[in-house]
Computed example of a mutant assay.
Amino acid sequence: MTKRSAAAKRPRRERGSLNPDDIIEGAFELAEQVSIDGLSMPLLGKHLDVGVTSIYWYFRKKDDLLNAMTDRALSQYVFATPFVESRDWRESLLNHARTMRSVFLGNPILCDLILIRSALSPHAAQLGARGMEHAVESLVEAGLSVDEAFDTYSALNLHIRGSVVLQRLYDKNKEQDAEAGAYYDDIAIDPDTTPLLAEAMAKGRKTGAPDDRNFEYGLKCILDHASALLEASKNAADAASRGVSEAAAAG
């Protein structure tokens, strides 16, 4: 999803040459200028230099077009995101999470289509499910139970999406109002009444902010918990094995 220059002007289109791919590509171009919320069929027709009825021939309403854009965006996003591998589950999951966050933060349109927009097409939902299935499968192969693997990846996914969406909403508010701030910027810290908070925040910490420090801390907590579950499972298996051996020796 390469960003085009807003100043680039499309050549006038020949009659009858419009196709769905051109419409989707033009919609991404226009969304970079006006956002997903500002995208409309009449504006897109003007951008593509075609009558709006030509667009409705392929996409009957804006939601149909957004579904097609989401399918394309999600396909490219899945392709760009590293898989979780069982043989090195922690490092690959760490890389997976950081890449997901980076991709979404770096592409507001992708974030708006996949994370903020509530509706997904069946195809997009299937792509998301297959990606999650692979991650859970890898964690099970690493030694977690299905429930533990599901809960681990679900918590990780929620952590990534929550961090990205909070940042995106903050950015959108700033675009609409330069004076707008975030809730974590408005917390009143008084060294006399909240000395511990004052001490921590004097070092650059922000409570609840979707910044790198908080993201990495939450990420470490999730992975540490998964490591503890694996260690407990291994210890239980070792204990059971020793019990069998001791019973066999006693018999």
Rank of each mutant, 00 (worst) to 15 (best):
D177C: 06
K174H: 12
R161P: 05
P122W: 08
N157K: 13
K203S: 12
S121K: 06
I109P: 05
E148C: 01
S163M: 12
G131K: 05
R117N: 09
A149M: 00
A135C: 04
I160A: 08
R161Y: 08
I189T: 11
L127E: 08
E199T: 09
K203I: 03
D190G: 08
A182S: 15
L110H: 11
N173W: 04
T194G: 03
G128F: 02
E199F: 10
L156E: 01
V136S: 01
P195N: 10
L115D: 03
D192Q: 15
G131E: 10
S163Q: 10
Q126L: 11
S154E: 13
R168E: 02
G131T: 04
H134E: 11
N157V: 03
C111A: 11
A129I: 06
L166I: 06
D171S: 10
A149C: 01
Y184L: 09
M201H: 10
D190V: 07
G162D: 02
L139C: 00
A198M: 06
A119Q: 14
L105C: 13
Q126I: 04
A178K: 15
L158V: 07
M132S: 13
P191D: 05
A155E: 05
M201I: 08
V164N: 01
T194P: 05
V146Q: 15
L197D: 12
D177N: 15
H159P: 05
L166Y: 04
V165P: 02
T193E: 13
V164R: 02
I160R: 06
L156Y: 00
T152K: 00
S145D: 01
T194A: 10
I160H: 07
D186E: 14
D186Y: 13
A135L: 02
A202G: 15
L169N: 11
L115I: 08
L113E: 03
Q176W: 08
I114C: 13
C111D: 10
D147A: 07
A180T: 09
G204N: 04
G204L: 05
D147E: 15
V164Y: 02
R161L: 06
A188K: 15
A200L: 15
L113R: 04
L127G: 03
D171V: 04
E137V: 02
I109F: 05
R161S: 14
Q176S: 14
L115C: 08
R130D: 12
Q126E: 14
A149I: 00
A182K: 03
H159I: 06
S118N: 08
G181M: 14
L105W: 10
D147R: 00
L197H: 09
A135D: 01
P195Y: 09
L110D: 09
E137F: 06
I187R: 14
M132D: 09
A198D: 12
D177H: 08
V146R: 14
E141K: 04
Q176M: 12
D186M: 13
Y153A: 01
Q126W: 07
A135G: 02
P122N: 04
G131Q: 11
A188D: 15
D151A: 11
A142L: 02
D190S: 10
T194I: 05
A125L: 07
D190F: 07
A129P: 04
H159R: 05
D171K: 06
P108G: 07
E179A: 15
H134A: 13
G131C: 05
V146E: 15
G143V: 01
R130E: 14
V140P: 01
D177Q: 07
L169E: 11
S118H: 10
E175H: 09
D151E: 13
L169G: 03
N107Y: 03
L196N: 11
I116Y: 08
